[in-house]
Amino acid sequence: MQSTELEYITALKERLGKRLPPEEVEDILSDYREHFRMGRADGRSEAELCRSLGEADDVAREMVATHFVNKAGHTKSARNFSHAVLATLGLGLFNLVFVLVPIIVLAVLLAVIFLVGGAFIVFGPVAFVLALLQLAGTPFFALWANPLAGILFSVGITALGLLLIIGNYYLANFFYRLGIRYLKWNIRVIRGTEEE
């Protein structure tokens, strides 16, 4: 536990410096410096101010979690999202552990849909060309019993692939936004460590 302003600010700086951009760290530190300045002017000792601020560690964890959740909200990427989840887990929010499994299952599902859609989009045109060649009478490509059915099938499968990819995109977006809101809610309502 820190008992002077210097110790407190140093502890915060050390913990934040590793994770956040320097301008943001400086902005956060200036708030706490101002707090100490005003508190001293108010006649409170540095030790007392440190005590009522609470552990620098807890403050830093909360700042880091907030930063990463905001970042993931602004710039969508799987990497930002996983950083946000990890930083929020760092607050000791054990309820998040229970949603971790559904999140991973969902991510795998979205990836599988993406791959299947992609495969259809690649396979469709190939099947289409093969069917055309067969229709043109090239015996070597006699893949289909009925080349016309082959053409219909390949057009169908290409369209299905496109639909899957587009649908998957919207689905991923939807769950991403939902996830960010859930993380924000966690940070807002629940605090890692109890006072005292």
Binding site: I28, D31, Y32, E34, H35, M38, G39, D42, S52, L53, G54, E55, A56, D58, V59, E62, M63, T66, I187, R188, R191, E195
Partner: peptide, 27 residues
């Protein structure tokens, strides 16, 4: 209000660590 004012007034009435109000302000 300035930060200290908010923190001071709130923590006078509600028992909470003052340090957690600054992250809230940023949010």
């Amino acid at each position: 209000c300035y930060g200290y004012e908010l923190v001071y007034e709130i923590s006078k009435r509600i028992d909470i660590s003052e340090g957690t109000i600054y992250p809230l302000l940023r949010r």
